[in-house]
Amino acid sequence: MSQPVPPVSPAASHDRPPVPVTVLTGYLGAGKTTLLNRILTENHGKKFAVVINEFGELGVDNDLVVDADEEVFEMNNGCICCTVRGDLIRILSGLVQRRGQLDGIIVETTGLADPAPVAQTFFVDEDVKRATRLDAIVTVADAKNLLARLADSKEAAEQLAFADLIVLNKMDLVTPAEADAVEARIRTINPWAQLIRSEKSQVPLDQVIGRDAFNLARILEHEPEFLSGEDNHSHDEEIQSLSFETDKPIDPEKFNAWISDLLATKGQDLLRTKGILAYAGEDRRFAFQAVHMIADGDFITPWKPGEARKSKIVFIGRDLNRPRLRRGFEACAA
């Protein structure tokens, strides 16, 4: 990552706004298929394309499917559903050719899936990157069984760690004290995600779709303290969340060299990385995000006159060395 990633030009996007994409994940039995079916059948007047890993797992009732033998088929409310048979990029590239006819794309992962490869798609392929916008990674969690799943499945923890929005489902099956305990455990894995409680996946569409929650700049506009706190950290048995802050200006070349080496050597353990940087001699903030080893960044809003220009970075991952990460980040000072 030798240079900051430039913003996409209007000409490159053919004067069409990018299609928002929601990645829907969650462990087996959490209720994500119920949530997806609610989205597909709700009387919202929108058209969504749905990409799924395995057709059989979707479990959409037969009367919703016009032609299950087709890779692309219409749903009864005007939605389009694609079964994934190999190349997610190929399918997305085909869908965005009709992006003027779509209000959004929903990608549902299998219950045992790591959502990282799906999220990485929107970083690595330039055509997909220009034509789509990752709106949010939404994880549905089973309030009744989540603690047991966290004890026997690393995928359950990964799905929580990657989430921008967590739907804590099946609240009708737990007591208030149990619900609080589950939420507290979730916060040890991912203290940054928005969390919504639900019963039987009854979540209003506008709480899940169109949140722009993967947009770090937008999050900071609404929650300025989102990346607050130096050396804040909490940890699960495996997954930790660490954040660091410095009021010294950052040298972009030093930062790019450090973060590139860090992601290359530690990327498999770094589930999510995000930060806002104050580059020396630059009046605009630089928003940085990474999923495993795939990184992206862009300049966003200017610093306000008189505002303290602090750089902040967050790591969520496994086996994180807090002193080493802190020293590496502080060494990027101009």
Rank of each mutant, 00 (worst) to 15 (best):
T25F: 06
G26F: 02
G29M: 05
A30K: 01
A30H: 01
G31W: 02
G31D: 09
G31C: 04
K32Q: 07
L35Y: 03
N37P: 03
N37L: 13
I39V: 15
N43A: 04
H44Q: 15
H44W: 09
K47Q: 10
V50M: 13
I52R: 03
I52V: 14
I52K: 15
N53C: 08
F55C: 06
G56E: 11
L58S: 09
D63S: 10
V65E: 11
V65N: 13
V66C: 05
D67K: 05
D67E: 11
D67G: 07
V72G: 08
E74R: 13
M75F: 07
M75H: 06
N76T: 15
C79G: 13
C79N: 15
I80V: 13
C82H: 10
T83D: 07
D87C: 13
D87V: 05
R90L: 15
G94T: 05
V96S: 06
R98M: 14
R99V: 08
R99E: 06
R99I: 11
R99H: 08
G100R: 12
Q101G: 09
L102I: 07
L102H: 07
E108C: 06
T109E: 01
T109S: 14
T110M: 05
A113V: 11
D114V: 09
A116N: 01
F122D: 00
E126D: 11
E126G: 01
V128G: 00
K129D: 15
R130S: 04
L134E: 00
D135M: 09
A136E: 01
A136P: 06
V138S: 04
T139A: 13
T139Y: 04
T139E: 02
A141I: 13
D142I: 02
A143Q: 00
A143K: 01
L146E: 01
L146I: 14
L147G: 01
D152S: 15
S153M: 12
K154H: 14
E155I: 11
E158A: 14
